[in-house]
């Protein structure tokens, strides 16, 4: 019987299913995985005041904040995804929307201006010193779109390091990692109904235009325009969960796959009427009872 471990972290339920029968050693590996997820929850949470991300959001406008190798790699990935997606992926967006009402010192016109440039105008990563600095007060990063994928990447490193042959790890069903040769069937619900995809030795990220709500309106915004897709999914190699998360968010905004997207990432986008797929086999699935 497979071993199941679960916890509440990253704003959702995280589950790990290990294919092998339970043993003290296997459970210890599973608990290490869950501890790693918690570790990243505690570091990357936008809402917990004691998280590293909250510390960065409080401090980076006043001084450069030094980053460790892992956090640096994540923020570098964010910078690259922001650039390659022409701003469609932007971790500064939540802060920009929020501070319109909370940071009275900045005029509204400035917000519009800043929102157009987003990360590129507001965030400075120093590659030599491995530091982050904000160019304005009131900037806040929300890594919610990539934190789950990143945490699962780090957690799956532990599974592989301990030679676990088969496992499924997911965070809130929107970020999934599958380890092992046997394909896993994953259901994805869009406005067009339920489809399934097969996932093997890789990661999957699903996004939909929900989550950031300001004045009752859903905002995934790209230069003032509406979201162009209702569901986007990206499949990447093991360890590519954060990148897959970033791109599934960007595809919701863009509606179509851009040329700049890495070929290592497969994708599918549902625009409200039909799926457009790039190297992903989608199968219709009966509605779950």
């Amino acid at each position: 019987m497979p071993l199941l471990l679960a916890t509440a972290a990253l704003g959702t339920r995280v589950e790990l299913v290990l294919d092998e029968p339970e043993s003290p050693g296997l459970r210890a590996v599973g608990e290490e995985v869950i501890a790693e997820v918690h570790h990243w929850h505690e570091r990357l949470s936008y809402f917990q005041p004691e998280s590293l991300l909250s510390f960065i959001n409080r401090s980076a406008a006043h001084r450069a904040v030094a980053l460790d190798e892992d956090v640096w790699s994540l923020l570098s990935l964010c910078r690259e995804a922001h650039r390659a997606s022409a701003g469609a992926f932007d971790p500064t967006l939540a802060g920009l929307l929020g501070r319109a009402t909370t940071h009275a010192g900045v005029p509204a016109s400035r917000h519009d201006q800043a929102a157009d440039a987003g990360w590129a105008a507001l965030v400075e990563l120093d590659d030599d010193r491995r530091t982050i600095r904000f160019r304005e007060r009131g900037v806040r990063l929300d890594l919610g779109a990539v934190a789950k994928g990143f945490a699962l990447d780090r957690a799956s490193d532990i599974l592989r390091r301990h030679g676990v042959g088969g496992a499924l790890l997911h965070a809130g069903t929107s970020s999934v990692v599958a380890i092992g040769a046997a394909p896993r069937t994953i259901g994805v619900r869009s406005a067009g109904g339920l489809v399934t995809v097969a996932l093997r030795e890789g990661c999957l990220s699903v996004s939909a235009p929900r989550g950031k709500v300001v004045d009752g309106t859903a905002h995934i915004r790209h230069r003032g325009g509406p979201a162009l897709a209702d569901t986007a999914l990206v499949i990447g190699p093991l360890g590519g969960g954060a990148e897959a998360d970033a791109w599934s968010t960007a595809l919701i905004v863009l509606g179509t796959r851009p040329m700049a997207m890495s070929d290592a990432l497969r994708s599918a986008v549902h625009d409200g009427r039909r799926w457009t797929s790039h190297r992903i086999q989608l199968s219709p699935a009966p509605e779950a009872a």
């Binding site: 003290p24 050693g25 210890a28 532990i158 301990h162």
Partner: peptide, 18 residues
């Protein structure tokens, strides 16, 4: 809720880690 058991990088370190 945890077993308080840690995975060892190799079996020889099992007792040391735990």
């Amino acid at each position: 809720k945890t077993s308080w058991r840690f995975p060892a990088s190799n079996p020889a370190r099992e007792n040391e880690v735990n």
